[in-house]
Simulated scan of single mutants.
Amino acid sequence: MTGFAALLEAIGDGVPDTAQYRQMADMVLDVPGAAALARLDPFSPAYREAALALYLSLRGRPEQGYEPGRDEPPARPPPDDPWTGLVPWSFRDASMASEHLFAYGHVLRHLGIPPGGSVLEYGPGSGQILLTLSRLGYRACGVDIDKAALGSITQQAHHLGLAVETERAGFGDGFDGQRFDAILFYEAFHHAFDFETLLIRLHDRLRPGGRLVLCGEPVVRAPTRAIPYPWGPRLDALSVFCIRRYGWMELGFTHDYLVALARTTGWRARLHRFAPAHRASLYVLEPITSRPIVPTLRAPVSWRLRTPLRASAHALAEMRRTLRRSSAQV
């Protein structure tokens, strides 16, 4: 915690610069009680309660609970110059900006929308993807609870002569329940604590043949020190900083859990990796049926049984590869 405390003192009331951002992203904090979460069934109400309690312990003010309208404020006021003051340009770092530009391109490649089709983006942030979609002739719609962010997007669109529609609402809401050819979350889905209900609701927001794209989400192949459980608050210093400073919900997921979650809420999930920049890796979710699986029929096999078996299978496969390499060298 000493290094984290020193970083907090250096940042003060400001926001992390690029060097501090990277330093905190690589730093993992030891949080009491985190290990207990990994022993619970991640689909159970007890797990959900424990995950929320862990978030509240990191944020402070546990008696207030979590309310997205209050606890997801902007990090800072809109910049005077949106062309240089918004993400990714505000990083003033070519390498950092490239990660976002890679991600934008990967999203465009996998949206799967017809010419002139429609996209609904939740949590569009600085609006760079929406502006690009509008330039390409798509109907670009954005929903956010941050009024200032929406205003900045509208300002940019007006200056460029583009049609970008925005509406202030929460995840799953907005635009009077209209259906779209694609729905996008870019670095936004992990802010949804009630993500299971959200995934069920999103079935009603897609047109037939549509898809849901999750990009830039903190998903790991297997539990790590920063995400030591199937899902829950991330424990890297950058995430904890955002939880404490702003109150943001900063969740992380394992790949196996996210795929199982998608299946139990009626989606088929496919991962598309992007090796040059992990931020650009994305999941494409397509409806399995018109109705999600009935909650009482979910997870017929115990998660606590299935996960160790999968880990053992991976370990056995690695052992076999090692033996083959050894044999080849003899």
Score class of each variant (00 low, 15 high):
T254P: 01
S134L: 02
A103R: 09
D256E: 14
W303F: 08
G33I: 04
C242S: 14
A269C: 05
P79A: 00
F241I: 05
V259T: 11
H203K: 09
V87H: 07
L101R: 14
G12E: 06
I243V: 15
W248F: 15
M24K: 04
T264M: 11
A262Y: 09
R179D: 10
S152A: 15
W303T: 01
L160P: 08
Y21C: 03
T2R: 14
D13N: 13
V87Q: 05
H106T: 05
H106P: 03
E187C: 11
G209A: 08
H314V: 15
R325F: 09
P308V: 13
I243P: 01
I288K: 11
Q23Y: 09
A34M: 07
V15I: 13
G177I: 03
A94L: 09
R22L: 14
A182K: 08
S118N: 03
L206F: 06
F274H: 15
L130I: 04
P78V: 03
W248I: 01
L37K: 09
T154I: 07
Q155Y: 05
S302M: 02
T166M: 02
I293P: 07
M319T: 15
W231H: 11
A280F: 09
L37W: 08
T132Q: 14
I153D: 01
E121F: 11
E196A: 13
P292L: 06
R245N: 00
L198D: 01
E67F: 11
A97G: 08
A103F: 04
D144I: 02
P218T: 02
L162T: 02
G177N: 04
K147F: 14
V143E: 00
F189Y: 13
L40I: 07
P68M: 02
G172R: 06
P308Y: 10
L214E: 09
R324T: 11
T264I: 11
G210I: 08
L133F: 02
R48Q: 14
R59L: 05
E250K: 15
V220S: 06
Y229M: 15
P276E: 01
L162W: 08
M249P: 02
S312N: 11
H203Y: 11
I183F: 13
Q156D: 01
A50W: 03
P115W: 07
Y122S: 00
R225C: 11
A311S: 14
A34Y: 01
A163T: 13
R324C: 10
R245D: 01
Q329L: 15
S90I: 02
E167M: 03
A97D: 00
F91V: 01
P228Q: 05
G3W: 13
R304T: 08
I11P: 06
R321G: 04
L40A: 08
F102I: 05
W89C: 04
L184T: 00
G125F: 01
P88W: 03
R61N: 08
P124E: 03
A19R: 12
H203P: 10
L214W: 10
R205G: 08
D176F: 13
A188Y: 05
G60C: 10
S152H: 01
V119G: 06
A280R: 03
F253G: 04
S281V: 03
S281N: 02
S302R: 09
L258V: 10
L108R: 12
P42E: 07
Q64G: 12
E286F: 10
G266H: 10
A5C: 04
L101A: 06
D71K: 09
H203S: 04
L214G: 09
Q128T: 12
V28F: 10
R22C: 10
R61W: 13
V119D: 00
V15D: 07
